[in-house]
């Protein structure tokens, strides 16, 4: 294939590739949102589909020393690409799941850094997850015809992996002079560091977001009870974390059912919470149900270790009509 034929093909199909990239980006975003993920904070770089420029396409097809294509037009699969950049390694799996489960396309998981690590355990180099997605059937998107089998490359990586890729791609592939071995060595060292840091980030986030409260699903159960007795959604704030933290040892698998049966005996509480909703922040959070329960069943402990101002408790004790004079 001559360069001119190649370009002619490309110009004819460019808008289809663009539409296909746009479809992929939009579908992945909407599936993430359906999982209650705020994509604007979850994705660290906006996932805008990008078409290769004519020049870089020609360069890749005809002038790369490392790779010779028999049929470059069909073999080059990243003519359009979308990149998803996230903070944590765990977030990558969230996106991967959306991609492999989507019914509209066939996927080819052509690169995953976990496999690279297994294959070349001594090598520290570019890390990312790559998929090639192809529509299962020919369809129309935004008024443009997208043929079945048209490839789109999706890259998924962490912010740190992305930083490494940006540096190596821009500074090394496009370097105007031969690269010194020590530069390669330094880049490899950064990748080693990045992999280490990504692991640490993952550990930190796990420590921060998991505890008995989440593992046992206590918070979700309480939110549900709050909704059902007040008719409002709870708006949980930092003060609830302080409270849960203080009484973490009381969080057990049967705590929700204990609180549930307590509420069943004290159904008037829903009305009181609604009435006092604006009095103080506790009434707006589902942790208020836990405090009510403690006032009734774990009073000594509650009063001994209460981490916030005592007057907040006073108000709740009045709701339940419990005397605090002996404490």
């Amino acid at each position: 294939m001559k360069e001119s034929d190649f370009l002619q093909n490309w110009h004819e199909e460019k808008s289809s590739y663009e539409a296909w990239g746009g479809f992929v980006a939009e579908e992945i975003l909407s599936h993430l949102r359906a999982n209650e993920i705020d994509t604007t904070s979850f994705l660290k770089v906006p996932p805008i589909p990008r078409l290769k420029t004519d020049a870089s396409l020609l360069d890749k097809a005809f002038y790369r020393k490392s790779k010779k294509y028999k049929n470059p037009y069909d073999e080059i699969e990243d003519k359009v690409g979308v990149r998803f950049v996230v903070l944590l390694l765990g977030d990558i799996e969230t996106i991967n799941k959306v991609i492999v489960n989507h019914p509209a396309w066939e996927y080819d998981a052509c690169k995953h850094f976990n496999e690279d690590r297994r294959r070349d355990p001594l090598l520290f180099t570019y890390q990312s997850v790559h998929f090639i997605l192809r529509p299962k059937i020919t369809f129309e998107f935004g008024g443009v015809y997208v043929p079945a089998g048209m490839p789109c490359e999706v890259q998924v990586r962490t912010l740190l992996q992305h930083a490494h890729a940006e540096l190596t791609h821009d500074a090394i592939y496009k370097a105007k002079r031969a690269i010194q071995p020590e530069v390669h060595r330094t880049v490899a060292k950064s990748m080693a560091l990045i992999e280490t840091t990504d692991d640490f980030f993952g550990q930190v986030s796990l420590k921060l977001s998991s505890g008995p409260l989440e593992e046992l699903g206590v918070d979700a159960r309480l939110d549900g009870m709050y909704r059902s007795i007040t008719g409002n959604f709870p708006s949980n704030q930092k003060s609830s974390i302080v409270i849960w933290d203080e009484f973490e040892d009381l969080i057990t698998g049967d705590l929700p059912s204990l609180i549930e049966s307590f509420l069943a005996r004290n159904q008037f509480l829903g009305e009181i919470i609604v009435k006092k909703y604006l009095d103080n922040g506790l009434y707006q959070q589902s942790v208020v149900l836990f405090i009510y329960w403690m006032l009734k069943r774990k009073r000594t402990r509650l009063l001994k270790d209460w981490p916030l101002e005592r007057v907040l408790l006073d108000s709740l004790a009045t709701d339940l009509g419990i005397s605090l004079e002996n404490h």
Partner: peptide
Amino acid sequence: MDAFITRVRDALGEESSA
């Protein structure tokens, strides 16, 4: 009024010495 209610609650409420 809140303080007065607190006095009444502490004097007569659950766990009080009433």
